[in-house]
Design a protein around this nucleic acid. Structure first.
Lengths: 97, 97
DNA sequence: CTTACATTAGACAAATATTGACAAGTCAAA
DNA sequence: TTTGACTTGTCAATATTTGTCTAATGTAAG
């Protein structure tokens, strides 16, 4: 499930309209529609605004948002698993210091 | 070790000058210097050109290059490990399909 | 010290990419 | 057919990235 699918699900659970949520975020309805459908990437501030409007844990949603960005980078790579291993090693080394 | 550190090591092993490698890549010496020092990110084509000039395995170097980009995105995140887990799950699900 | 050459730093314009809004479109329910 | 929710395409404005130039710094040899 992508970030967009996720927030759409929450929005629908809460029975909110695109128009309502977008308005609270101070963005165009069309833009929110695109974010939910994945044709546009939310900016960090927008992800934060979404957490607020949809009453979600901000850090958790931001993690999801960031994960989405990385998945997007990797989605066309045939060696994505291998790349992730390298990343993990590097991150582990970084965090030790 | 970052991508830049890595290629600098190889270049020095081969006793090549920045000027020589940059010239073969058709870029300015200053730019290659920055790439090696990590103040600029190489573009994909430049990473490929480096593989060629330094006679490295292209796919391997590109993996390293991509890993570096992701590490760069995650380096300021406190929950990078958590984020990576989410990414892995998503990637695994994607590759199943 | 000077010279010569390698590398680096900073600033800039040009090229690219991202962003948000608008207008027009589809779609479904009434 | 009207209404309201959502979607799509396009565009100008803005922001970011890119590569180069010049000047600075480092360094080894004479």
């Amino acid at each position: 499930m992508t970030f967009g699918e996720y927030i759409r699900e929450i929005r629908e659970e809460k029975q909110l309209l695109l128009r309502e949520v977008a308005s609270q975020m101070n963005i165009d309805t069309a833009l929110l529609s695109k974010i939910e459908r994945g044709t546009r990437m939310a900016r960090k501030e927008q992800a934060e605004a979404l957490a607020k409007v949809l009453k979600q844990n901000k850090n958790e949603l931001l993690q999801f948002w960031m994960a989405d960005k990385i998945v997007f980078m990797l989605k066309d790579e045939k060696n994505s698993t291998e790349i992730l291993k390298i990343v993990e090693q590097k991150i582990n080394r970084l965090s030790k210091k």
